[in-house]
């Protein structure tokens, strides 16, 4: 019962973040929405494991948490520098 409630809350929040990432005026709003969506996916996988009585999907949640992090970093870096390599202009842009 309470797992179902929690899963419903997670789904509602996913809709809200998806709204932000579709509507978002700037590209950063979209990245932020997708990042939160990924975190919510991790939570949803975990909760669904308990809801169905077979908490075996936690490995997937673990891997998804890591992929979500790398996804956000990579997209932020791509948007900031317009490519994935070393920054070309100025010292203050490096080290990201």
């Amino acid at each position: 019962m309470m797992f179902a409630l929690t899963a419903a809350a997670v789904l509602v929040t996913m809709v809200l973040t998806l709204y932000r990432s579709i509507k978002g005026p700037t590209v950063y709003d979209r990245i932020l929405g997708i990042n939160a969506f990924g975190t919510l996916t991790v939570v949803l996988i975990s909760v669904y494991g308990f809801l169905s009585g077979r908490p075996d999907f936690l490995d997937l949640a673990l891997v998804y948490a890591l992929i979500n992090f790398i996804n956000t970093i990579a997209v932020s870096k791509y948007v900031e520098f317009s490519h994935m390599g070393r920054p070309t202009g100025g010292d203050e842009l490096g080290d990201m």
């Binding site: 979500n68 932020s76 870096k77 990201m96």
Partner: peptide, 17 residues
């Protein structure tokens, strides 16, 4: 994992923005 990666991702995004 979430506690360690979330501030890093947020900071990277804020810097990019």
């Amino acid at each position: 994992f979430i506690v360690f990666t979330s501030p890093t991702a947020t900071h990277a995004l804020a810097r990019a923005a």
